[in-house]
Design a protein around this nucleic acid. Structure first.
Lengths: 337, 337
DNA sequence: GGGCCGTTTGTTAACGTTCACAGTCAGGCC
DNA sequence: GGCCTGACTGTGAACGTTAACAAACGGCCC
């Protein structure tokens, strides 16, 4: 592989010989040990520079038992939410001095998660972040104690591990209460897939807000996060006559709903008010610009690494639980009833 | 760290003792060497199972000099294009038996790319995929021969390394020719940031198609891929009177353009036709559904791993160049002039 | 001058694999 | 019977680093 240039890469011993010291002294310089004479240190650094030496992290990991790598398990990183979260995780990890190894799952079943975790543990990661938005994934995680610090993102009650998540229930409430405050009799809901904890939380928040206001909760329409499923739900809603307010569980489906309404001649917000969830970069430019609930994915990613690193370096055993509040973003897709 | 259970993890020697063989025989079983008596193999496997032994990949990497990990350098994995590409890369890599370590850059400058590459090489990756859509990144890549197999995605002419990319020029042509064929006198263009090779390719394709048809190319309006920049370009375009056809360099900006047009009372496609680029999942549900040029990001990711693995395992030294053609997707945002 | 302590350095042994080589054993052939 | 061959197994030495311990040295105090 490195056959092109016959000379092998320099190792610590080469540096040691060049600097006229022992390899251990080189190691000490590299690891900032205090007891090295500054003149010696300078000579070593010079030798390192001259030979173009780079320390072999694999050998280091073998003896220290720390690879300096964190594992991330995620589901469909094509979706805006997971993608943003993983992005936040990666940046936070790197600035904390860790590498990130990623496994993206296409479907989340027990075996898939189990494999992904084994895969990462085998590779020698120091800790793991699992973006586990599905009930099944969270449960799997709860079941298998894997003897390695782990943080679940959006992981519900996930057993023994730490959890960082956005308060989905509060988000659902926020959306619903806003619509009720505008004078709507009730609020319809297009939900995410029932297996997703996020979808479930939003349903709960929606239902709670309705109950608190003494309103009947209509039967929610189930979607799968995709614009198409929102579109189909939108067609159903457009054909009903008493619908004046809809809370859609994410912005992509809300786009589909808006499209269906437009096609059917239902005007938003004049006839029906619509609220989304996520605040993707596009939603400000929908027709009409979408009122929505913003999730701070970046913060979620950052916090998950903070928790993990604290566990890794501080050695705290307690299981933390960190909740990030969602925020309400008013645009023009909602109006008085 | 593993302090909770005092017992240390079993190693090869433990398995060997349990099975009554030498550690080397265990190694042979693990690596599917042919010359092991099947009865011995069974005994070893049984011991492995009994002890719950897992091979230490770090130790293995130290001696074989292969970590089984590929590095990926990418820019802003929040954008749909990079996110999808990285997703494709990850899946392809895993099914080829490799792990993936990711570094996401916030901004791409020479130092950033250089650091990211060093970082990955230090970690001992076997090969690297750089998603380098910006001219500066591609150039950096071209400059530094890093003695490790590398593939550039969207990397232009990138020096000595292999390149996998979508034919952006063809895409720009496709979009422009479609609009011209509908009878439009000329086609305006909202471009991506000038430092991006993709943006540049689309401009070239657009200009070439216009020239070939003997039309004057208007001055392109510069965007930054964001819906907002598209919105601003859209406002400018709406204020001009001779604009009947616009080719927008990505779907997100096209959404902004559509929004601006709607606000200004410009009807699409009746008064102005709009074509986007990428075919993000949302664009089918824009108002109106967007005619666009589809990029197969998944294929790009897959191919980049194919090329890399071929280089890694086949040992071919030649620099491949693989171009994925874009496809035209007709929806309803375009109509006869 | 002797003993002790702190700083600096070197020596040796891990870490858990794979590789190179050397056995051992049975069977086949002359 | 002796020798060769092929299948199977074991032994020792890497790989490149850090950890543990030991040694050398100077300074300080009594």
């Amino acid at each position: 592989m490195r056959s092109s240039l016959g000379r092998r890469l320099p190792v610590m011993a080469d540096v040691a010989k060049e600097a006229g010291v022992s390899h251990q002294t080189v190691s000490r310089v590299l690891n900032d040990h205090p007891n090295v004479r500054s003149e010696t240190r300078a000579r070593v650094l010079e030798a390192i520079d001259k030979l173009g030496y780079r320390r072999n992290l694999v050998a280091r990991a073998l003896v220290t038992k720390h690879s300096g790598t964190l594992g991330v398990v995620s589901f469909d990183t094509t979706l805006y939410g997971p993608a943003s979260t993983v992005y936040g995780i990666e940046r936070a990890a790197r600035s904390a001095g860790y590498f990130v190894s990623i496994v993206s799952l296409r479907s989340i079943d027990r075996a898939g998660v189990r494999d992904a975790l084994d895969y990462l543990v085998d590779q020698g990661v120091d800790g793991i972040v699992v973006v586990a938005p599905q009930r099944s994934a969270a449960q799997t995680l709860a079941d298998l104690p894997l003897g390695i610090p782990t943080v679940a993102v959006e992981g519900g009650e996930a057993g023994e591990v730490c959890v960082v998540c956005v308060d989905q229930v509060a988000g659902g409430r926020l959306a619903t209460e806003h619509l009720l405050s505008l004078g709507h009799e009730t609020v319809w809901h297009v939900s995410g897939p029932s297996d997703w904890l996020e979808a479930e939380g939003r349903v709960s928040g929606w239902r709670a807000a309705l109950e608190q206001a003494g309103r009947e909760a209509p039967r929610p329409l189930a979607g799968d996060w995709s614009p198409r499923s929102g579109y189909e739900a939108g067609r159903s809603l457009a054909s009903m006559k008493n619908v004046t307010a809809v809370f859609v569980a994410n912005d992509q489906m809300a786009l589909g709903v808006l499209r269906a309404f437009t096609e059917q001649g239902v005007r938003v917000p004049e006839q029906v008010s619509v609220v989304g969830f996520d605040d993707i970069p596009e939603s400000e430019f929908f027709s009409p610009p979408l009122t929505t609930i913003r999730q701070d994915f970046d913060a979620v990613g950052r916090h998950s690494i903070e928790v993990l690193v604290r566990q890794l370096e501080g050695g705290t055993e307690e299981r933390e639980r960190l909740v990030v509040p969602p925020t309400f973003v008013r645009r023009v897709s909602t109006a008085l009833a």
